[in-house]
């Protein structure tokens, strides 16, 4: 890896580029062209344009009107749904990300044994992650129906007088979304990433730990988990980015309700942009949101330097 991105051999002193280097540049940029067009046309350009729009009032029909930082001021001071949607999104991420990361790690550890029938379990665990999000939300809305859903029928059968209202109850709507997320992702890609990580742990380390008298819990605690920290880190970073952007699940399940209880930040941006056509304001919200996500990601990378253990370093 280090070898592949070693610095280009440019003769800096004399400002002359060797023919070989010229060839590298020519072909490098030739093959890069489609991506460069996409990067500037669909990413940088639109990103900058949305940054410009965030300082304007723009309803698509008439041209943008420059209003300086008013959108940014308004979002912090006048928008009732701004802070609440932000904290709701944070609540969803803070609960769902650790549960999915630790849960899928736990399942991977269970599966990383040479027991008979293990492939059947692995396939079964993976299957829900293949169900499209729209399908899984529709399935869980019916499973979790407060009156005749399978879950509440079972809970009543077990003697619970007043089972939760799930999606219909504003206290339970986010936990319901988390439940769908757990079902659809515990056995999915994250678990596979953990399994790959587990298979990379040399067996000698376990043998050494066993000789030192470590039981299975100690082996997990002192060998497996430290060696999985890069995987935990990777899954957490991607998990946070994904969870913060949740749109489809909340929209299809409850359209942000009941009583705004699943009104996540992505829904708020969507509503402002594509329902109210407050494009300028929505762009400001989106930029603010991007900064939050980038800051959180960088923060996690910072923390990881202290907490992640890379083998062979």
């Amino acid at each position: 890896m280090a070898n592949a991105i070693s610095p280009p051999k440019v003769l800096t002193g004399r400002r002359r580029v060797s023919p070989a280097q010229r060839r590298q540049n020519l072909y490098g940029y030739l093959f890069l062209t489609p991506w460069l067009i996409g990067f500037f046309g669909l990413f940088v350009g639109p990103g900058l344009y949305s940054f410009f729009l965030s300082f304007t009032k723009y309803d698509v029909i008439s041209s943008p009107v420059f209003i300086a930082t008013r959108n940014y001021v308004d979002m912090f001071t006048k928008d009732d749904l701004f802070w609440s949607s932000l904290s709701r999104t944070a609540y969803y991420a803070i609960v769902s990300v650790p549960l999915t990361v630790l849960g899928s790690m736990f399942l991977a550890i269970l599966l990383n044994t040479q027991l008979r029938g293990i492939t059947v379990f692995r396939t079964l665990f993976f299957m829900p992650s293949l169900v499209p999000i729209v399908a899984s939300i529709i399935l869980f809305k019916i499973l979790l129906n407060s009156d005749f859903g399978l879950v509440n029928t079972a809970l009543r059968g077990l003697g619970m007088q007043d089972p939760p209202g799930w999606f219909a109850d504003s206290r339970w709507s986010i936990p319901s979304l988390i439940l769908v997320r757990l079902w659809g992702s515990l056995g999915g890609t994250q678990m596979i990433i953990f399994l790959a990580g587990l298979q990379g742990i040399p067996t000698e380390l376990y043998d050494a730990a066993s000789i030192d008298g470590a039981g299975s819990w100690h082996r997990i605690r002192h060998v497996t988990i430290p060696l999985l920290t890069p995987t935990i880190f990777f899954n957490t970073v991607l998990g946070v980015i994904g969870a913060l952007q949740t749109f489809a699940a909340a929209f299809i399940a409850t359209e942000g309700g009941p009583n705004f209880s699943t009104w996540f930040f992505a829904l708020h941006i969507w509503k402002q942009a594509f329902d109210y056509f407050n494009m300028g304001y929505a762009a400001a919200l989106a930029w603010f949101f991007a900064l939050v996500i980038v800051a959180l990601t960088l923060l996690q990378m910072r923390l990881s330097k202290r907490m992640v253990f890379y083998m062979g370093e």
């Binding site: 639109p46 913060l244 952007q245 762009a283 991007a290 980038v294």
Partner: peptide
């Protein structure tokens, strides 16, 4: 790392 929603609005436009 950049959330899709940031570029989505101007892409839509």
């Amino acid at each position: 790392m950049i959330p899709a929603i940031v570029t989505f609005i101007p892409q839509y436009l």
